[in-house]
Design a binder for these strands. Sequence first.
DNA 1: TTGTAAGCGTTATCAA
DNA 2: TTGATAACGCTTACAA
Lengths: 331, 331
Amino acid sequence: MDVAALAGVSIKTVSRVLNGERHVGSYTRQRVQRAIEMLDYRPNIAARSLSGARAYLIGLFFDNPSPGYVSEMQAGAMRACRRAAYHLVVEQLSGAADESLAQLDQLARTLRMDGVVLSPPVCDRADVLALLDARGVPYARIAPAAGAASGHFVWMDDAAAARAMTSRLIELGHRRIAFIRGHAGHAVSEVRYGGFREALAKAGLPLDRELVKPGDFSFRSGWEAGLALLDSPRRPSAVFASNDDMALGVMAAAHRLKLSVPEDLSVAGFDDSPGARVVWPQLTTVRQPVALMTEGAIDLLVARPAGATGGRLYPFEIVERGSTAAAAAAP
Amino acid sequence: MDVAALAGVSIKTVSRVLNGERHVGSYTRQRVQRAIEMLDYRPNIAARSLSGARAYLIGLFFDNPSPGYVSEMQAGAMRACRRAAYHLVVEQLSGAADESLAQLDQLARTLRMDGVVLSPPVCDRADVLALLDARGVPYARIAPAAGAASGHFVWMDDAAAARAMTSRLIELGHRRIAFIRGHAGHAVSEVRYGGFREALAKAGLPLDRELVKPGDFSFRSGWEAGLALLDSPRRPSAVFASNDDMALGVMAAAHRLKLSVPEDLSVAGFDDSPGARVVWPQLTTVRQPVALMTEGAIDLLVARPAGATGGRLYPFEIVERGSTAAAAAAP
DNA sequence: TTGTAAGCGTTATCAA
DNA sequence: TTGATAACGCTTACAA
C-alpha cells in the first residue's frame, strides 16, 4: 500500500483512518488523509469484503413488477448507497416460492451482503425472513404487514391514507363511492380497504357491497371493474382504486363509455405512480414517499446499531389533481 | 475447502471444476461435482474477485429517468446475469458531467467490474468511454449513436422503424402528419426524425415545417406540442411522436380539446413503454426489444472473446393498437 | 491430469 | 496510539 509508505505509517494505520476508527493520533490521521488524497487512493471492495465484516453491498429484492414503484425504490436506494459508499445489487425474485428461496440463499452465501431491502409483497414471506435470519443477513422491509416485528422496517399509514382520501371524496359530496380492492397477496390491500370502510362508517354512509370490486393492482383489473361499475344505471359518482394502475383502468373504461372525468365520475388512485401524470385529466392520488422510504430503509441497515431493530413511519400526502371534483347536484 | 476433502482431491482441482476448465479427468470431475452438491457449496465471490481476473459483477449505468425503459433494461440485465452467475450493480449517473465521471472512476476502481452496460444517452459520452478504456473496463452500449465503433453494442434500426411507422400512417390515408422530435441530447432523436422525413419523401409528400415540433421525450413537451398542433384549423390528422410519453401528452391534449382519438386524430408513439397500455385507446407504437437488447449486451460482455468487439442488431415491431385508424374521408 | 505454494488487498488479533 | 503478522477463500504460476 503506497499510501502507508507516503505517510510513513503501517498499513494498519491507514486502514484505521479509512474506517474512521478511534485511537489514531490526530497528526497521524492528518498525514494519512493527505496521502490518500494525493494518491487518489480507493480501497478495493473485494479485499475488504473478504477480510472484514462488511462487504459494502446492499441487496434490493423485489417481485413486484410495477416499473414506477421499482424505479422509485431504486432511486432512493441508490442515493442512500452512494452516501454511505455502499453499492446496490438488484435481483428480481422470480419463479415459484421454493425456487426464489433457493436463489436468495445462493445470493446470501456468494455475495455476503451487509443487508437486504425487501419490498412488498416479498417482504411478507415468512420463509424468506426465516432464511435471512438463519443466514444472519440483516434486512429492512418496505411497508410490511402490520404487526411484523422482526428486522428493520419503514412504513406509511395506509389505513389513514385511505380514510383521508375517502373522507375527501365524501366532503366533495359523493355518496355512492365505489372501491376497487388490491391484490390479495399484498398486505396493504386489506389495510386500504379497511381505511375506506372506516371513513364511510364515520360519515354514516352504508357500505354497498355492489360497489366493492376485486382487483389485482393491474390496469386490466381496474378496467374490468370500471366497466362493471359504470355500465349500470346505478353507477357510482366516484371510484377509489387501491392503486394508480387500476384507477387508470377505470378512467379508460369511463372514456370508453363516454363518461367524462371528473364531470360524470371522479376517480382517485393510490401511489402517485408516473402514470398518474400522463393521462388527462391527471389523477388524484395518495402520494407515497417510496424513494424516501427506501432511502430510510438502507440508512437503517447501514447504521447497524448492533442487532437493533426498528421502524420509521413516513407521511403520506393527498394529491388532488383533475380527476376528482364535486359530485353533480342530482345524484 | 471441505469439498476438496470430501472428493479426495486438492482445492486446485475443485477450482478447476468450478471454472469449467479442461484437463480434469472425467471421473475426478464427477466426484468433485458430487461433493459440491452434497455440501451445497457456493464459491465466495469476494475471494474470486480478489484473486482472479473476474469479479462476477456487471455494472448498469443510466442517466435516463424513464421508469419504463429502465425497468425493462434491468429485467433483461438480471436475466442475463443470473444465467451467467454474475450480479448486477446499478448506479444512476447524476449531476454535472465531471461529477458523474468522477463517480464512474471511483466505481471502476473500487468495484473492478467485469464490464458495464451503458444506456442512452450516457452511452454516447466520449469522456465516459475514454475513462472506461483507460481503466480497462469493457463496456457494451445500448442503442449508441451510429458510427460508434468502440466496445460492444446492441442496437435497433431506429430509422427503419420511424420509416415503417410513418409509411403505415400514410397507408392509412393520412397526408398531414405531424412529428414531435426527441431530446436533442439523444442520438436516436435525429435518426428517428430522419426516418420520418424519408418516408414522407418516398411517398411524395412535402415536409411541412409547421407540423414538426420540438420535444424532449417528456409528457409535458408532448402535451405542449399537441396543444400547439391541434388548436388550429389546419391541424394534422395524425401525430407521430418520437416516444410514448410525448405521444401520451398529445393524446391528453386531444382529450382536453375534445378531439376523439382515433376518430379525429391518430396518434403513434415509439418504445412501447408501460404507459402505452394504460390509456384508452391504447397507443400504437414501435416495440423496441429493450430487455432482449440489454440481455444481449451482457452476453457480449460475459463471453469476453479476448478484446473482441461487436454489435448485434435487434428487430423492431410496429404494434398497432387503438390510437391509430384510417384518416377521415374529408381531410 | 493433478498438486504445491504464492499471492490478491484488506481487516482482525495481539503484542509493543 | 501504533505495528507485525496471520487470516479471509479463492486463482494463478509453476512443478510434478
